[in-house]
Nucleic acid binder design. Structure first.
Lengths: 267, 267
DNA sequence: TAGTGGTCTAGACCACCGT
DNA sequence: CGGTGGTCTAGACCACTAG
């Protein structure tokens, strides 16, 4: 709301008055109109004006609202669609992307069976082992940009693929945003966890970074995954972000890779 | 060369004569003009009309050549730039992407030091252990789409990062395309291997797929990487493609991950 | 100053979707 | 059929680079 009128036009992204050599790299660098529109749309997404799954206004309407041409709105939406924040459907409109209703289940999971595809493997089984509210350790707090000792929700679970326990993982979530999350909520819910976060807590995960290592299974982990202790496992640490680069989840997983592999595309 | 005149306009991507129900999903599906332009530019790249590092004709010139508007050429180039096949530089022109001269060394290597960045680690050391012409085993032949028993070049090498042997890998390349590749060529060349492939063999790697697993170090591998046998290692199998999805390299690497991690971005 | 890519506009028409 | 996104055009102006 409070849409700027007249809308910003060709505004330098850095104040033009700064004398040369104010200490930074300081290229003047103009911010194109469509980037400003993109930012405005992002604000509406973040503010919840349009929620996951919703139809957003048509390009014409947005062009009228922001007082720019349809082409400029189009370019803004193009970039948001490229980032998987919006989904365009010809003839129908543009929708806010969601982890539910999305044909790609587990959009962030890169583990695939060595033979066949995920569908042929049948549905994954999920086994919640724990859901506790604890104080964040130093490294968890740092990753989630919290103060050490702040409350976080820690979830421990095992995922089974093709009838075999394959992934053992711990999740940490900011206690503030995930106030009502309990073991019951998790076990009752069918569908991707990120879809639950969207519908119940208004937190949409948009992007993530993963760090992979090969490690030896500890006795405890080995028991959970039904392998001998010392078995090589893929360690996957994931940090997931909402809009505007705010980290909202830390995940530490151990993947069995005897019948599965982590797939990645490079370009 | 033999540019279609008049240029194709709004051509159905599937022959229009096929009676309904020729066995496929069979949506008519039109192919936009800019896709056709994109394909023509791709042909020129593939044919070597413009080589890696070259400046290609300006948008205006291409628009004139193909008899379309500049905006249409622009959209074609946009997609090729998004695929990292072309690089735009404002005020200068559009260039063919290259693995050399590119500020990002090792564009396909996702291994990063746990602390600090790659630059602070100093240059990588490369140690070529072998370069032989051998007959392709069944799996290698299948991956490279060759007949079993056809000649391939097999390279074995160790990469050192920060003074520590960190990556042990085998490469297989089609013998046909890499006729003059020898141990001497490899040891003499400074810079990324893919840059050598470009300049000496005209093979430009454009895209790759990787499959990761956690494995235990064999005694032989352990010796090469200076770790105890049985140490968990990250197994990375890479299939790299040239233009048009032709596989041109199979790589099987073992990565130490005690001081490094494999980084991946999800979105 | 000339040439390049980058942005923005306005308008036309097409393909797809629901009614 | 009307509304949506998708394509294509033509022209104007801006920002960056180099001679």
């Amino acid at each position: 709301m409070t849409i700027e009128r007249p809308p910003a036009r060709r505004v330098p992204s850095a104040p033009a008055d700064a004398p040369a050599g104010s200490g930074g790299v300081g290229a003047p660098a103009f911010s194109p109109l469509y980037q400003q529109i993109k930012a405005l749309i992002l604000q509406s997404l973040q503010a919840g004006e349009w929620r996951p799954g919703d139809l957003i206004p048509s390009e014409q309407e947005l062009a009228a609202r922001y007082k720019v041409s349809q082409g400029t709105v189009r370019k803004a939406i193009d970039e948001l669609a490229a980032d998987n924040l919006l989904v365009r459907r010809q003839g129908k409109g543009t929708f806010v992307a969601t982890h539910a209703e999305q044909h790609v289940q587990y959009r962030f999971l890169r583990l695939h069976p060595d033979h066949g595809d995920r569908a042929s493997e049948g549905p994954a089984t999920r086994d919640i082992l724990a859901c506790r509210r604890v104080r964040a350790s130093a490294d968890v707090a740092a990753a989630l940009q919290l103060r050490a000792g702040e409350t976080v929700v820690q979830v421990t679970r095992v995922l089974g693929l093709g009838g075999v326990p394959t992934i053992l993982e711990d999740l940490w979530l900011p206690g503030q945003a995930f106030r009502g999350l309990t073991m019951d909520t998790l076990t009752a819910y069918a569908g991707p966890m990120y879809a639950l976060f969207e519908s119940e807590f208004g937190v949409r995960m948009v992007r993530a970074e993963e760090r992979l290592k090969a490690v030896a299974a500890s006795p405890a982990a080995a028991a959970r995954l039904a392998v001998p202790a010392g078995t090589p496992l893929l360690s996957v640490e994931r940090l997931a972000y909402t809009y505007n680069g705010v980290p909202m989840e830390l995940r530490r997983g151990l993947y069995r890779t005897d019948r599965h592999h982590y797939r990645n595309e490079l370009s």
